[in-house]
């Protein structure tokens, strides 16, 4: 037996938080086990969806989601940890079909010695993001930890909303179309450039934004023909596609040439040797639709300011269930999920 397995198999490493297979495995093995069953008709922990849906008994559901946010650096081009915390939770609710959040909670854990001015900036951007999303923070909690016990600041937000129809991330059938709501890789690329001080000058800005309004427009246009929603955050479009394919038991054929990528992100990812398909997004959705609803949903997305670059990028297949085949324009290959955070490479 390799000792390395013994040493590290029992410890959490960064890859367990990177949104890929390792994280799903950890959640599956440790966190979903042992809790009493959720009420009948609920979408609970075992679904490992973006949030939970609890039946209210009148046909409607209370949708709940929670998300913790740590990001280095806390301020980056296009946003900061405050905007991220509000947008992340609003978007997770929207990915369940709940586009009108009733309210958010916010818990702040902050390190001793943290600059008050930075807290003020974070607070101001949370307020602005709440206004954009049409919601507010209704309760909160603050803890301070000793110097060195935490790196700066961590935020947790929880959101609640009522939905009449809950949209899952597992409803795909062969023939369904997949739509992304805009350019991919913007958030991860901007944060990576700032984190590793790559000195890249250009329009690298995070796309972090609440997109519940955009999703509302898509749901109105697609009706029951809109069958799945997923936000391609950590692990990028690749992880979101794999998770959808696996949960729905379909294959996915992705047309790489149709995937919208900003020029700056494309250039940076060439330079750093990172595939935009594995880079995180914080203001985009991956939408699965029945073929006859595709055009209506696409048109509704494109009519919305946040969905101008929306595109149909893939089709679900009966072959290679659980896998994603990438058509590069030159040939086809399997798309792989990233393990851990993407890092700039030299070879």
């Amino acid at each position: 037996m390799n000792l390395r397995l013994d040493l590290l198999g029992e410890r959490v490493s960064m890859k367990h938080g990177a949104g890929g297979r390792a994280m799903r495995q950890l959640i599956g093995e440790v966190f979903t086990d042992g809790f009493p069953k959720a009420p009948a008709g609920a979408i609970g922990l075992d679904a490992m969806d973006d949030g939970a849906a609890l039946p209210l008994g009148d046909g409607r559901f209370l949708v709940v989601t929670t998300d913790s946010h740590v990001v280095l650096p806390a301020f980056f081009p296009g946003g900061d940890i405050g905007r991220l915390a509000v947008s992340g939770t609003v978007n997770d609710l929207a990915m369940m079909g709940a586009t009108e959040p009733l309210g958010l909670t916010c818990a702040v854990v902050v390190e001793e010695g943290y600059p008050r001015a930075d807290l003020d900036r974070i607070h101001a951007s949370m307020v602005a993001a709440c206004v954009e999303a049409g919601t507010t923070v209704v309760t909160g909690d603050t803890k301070v930890m000793g110097k060195g016990q935490l790196d700066g600041i961590a935020l947790n937000t929880t959101g609640v909303a009522i939905a009449t129809r809950v949209v899952r991330d597992c409803g795909l059938q062969p023939g369904d179309r997949l739509i992304v709501t805009g350019t991919i890789g913007d958030h991860g690329c901007a944060v990576m450039a700032a984190r590793h001080k790559l000195d890249l000058a250009g329009d690298l800005r995070s796309d972090v934004a609440p997109i519940n309004g955009l999703i509302r427009a898509a749901l109105a246009a697609g009706g029951d023909g809109l069958v799945t929603l997923k936000d391609p955050t950590r692990g990028g479009l690749s992880s979101a596609l794999h998770e959808m394919a696996h949960k729905s038991g379909v294959g996915v054929l992705l047309d790489e040439t149709a995937v919208p990528v900003n020029a700056a992100v494309r250039a940076a990812s060439e330079l750093l040797g990172i595939d935009p398909l594995v880079i995180a997004n914080e203001g985009k959705a991956l939408i699965g639709v029945r073929p006859d609803a595709a055009e209506a949903v696409l048109a509704a997305l494109r009519a919305h300011p946040q969905g101008r670059d929306a595109a149909i990028v893939g089709t679900c297949t009966a072959e290679r269930r659980g896998q994603v085949v990438l058509d590069t324009g030159f040939g086809r290959r399997l798309l792989v999920e990233i393990e851990g955070e993407p890092l700039p490479r030299i070879c």
Binding site: A201, G202, D203, L204, V265, A267, A268, L271
Partner: peptide, 28 residues
């Protein structure tokens, strides 16, 4: 083995050039 990327020189100052990679610029 080596990730080489072509770009176009925008300006030169001593032994450092600003190079445009069609989307981002970087000192080279």
């Amino acid at each position: 083995m080596c990730l080489g990327v072509p770009g176009r020189v925008v300006s030169v100052e001593g032994l450092v050039a600003t190079v445009d990679f069609w989307g981002v610029r970087r000192a080279v």
